[in-house]
């Protein structure tokens, strides 16, 4: 018996919300970053689930693009985190506040 698509969508919505909450409330830049990845992967799950329901490949192809882009973002993001850590010996976003805002 197939699991209904709505189950996957609900799971992905839950994952997405956990990710978004993480970005909003956690303080460590790496954890923020992991939360963003969780959000992206929640979207991937939804895409694959819908793709299975419709019997088309569009959604699955899109997942590959999302994964590729996420990899590129990781490269840039980690590089930025490393440079910041070199200067301040901390990646806590609460410590990064030389700009008012």
């Amino acid at each position: 018996m197939l699991v209904p698509t709505s189950y996957f969508v609900i799971l992905s919505a839950v994952l997405f919300t956990i990710g978004a909450t993480g970005v909003l409330f956690r303080k460590n830049a790496i954890i923020l970053f992991m939360s963003v990845e969780l959000m992206l992967n929640a979207a991937n799950l939804a895409l694959v689930a819908f793709s299975r329901e419709f019997g088309t490949l569009d959604g699955q192809i899109f997942v590959f693009f999302v994964m590729t882009v996420a990899a590129a973002e990781v490269a840039i993001g980690l590089a930025l985190i490393v440079t910041i850590f070199r200067n301040r010996a901390s990646i806590d976003v609460d410590d990064i506040h030389s700009l008012k805002g």
Binding site: F16, A43, A46, D58, G59
Partner: peptide
């Protein structure tokens, strides 16, 4: 995620 929902 928005695109995924529109796709859905």
């Amino acid at each position: 995620y928005g695109i995924a929902l529109v796709f859905g």
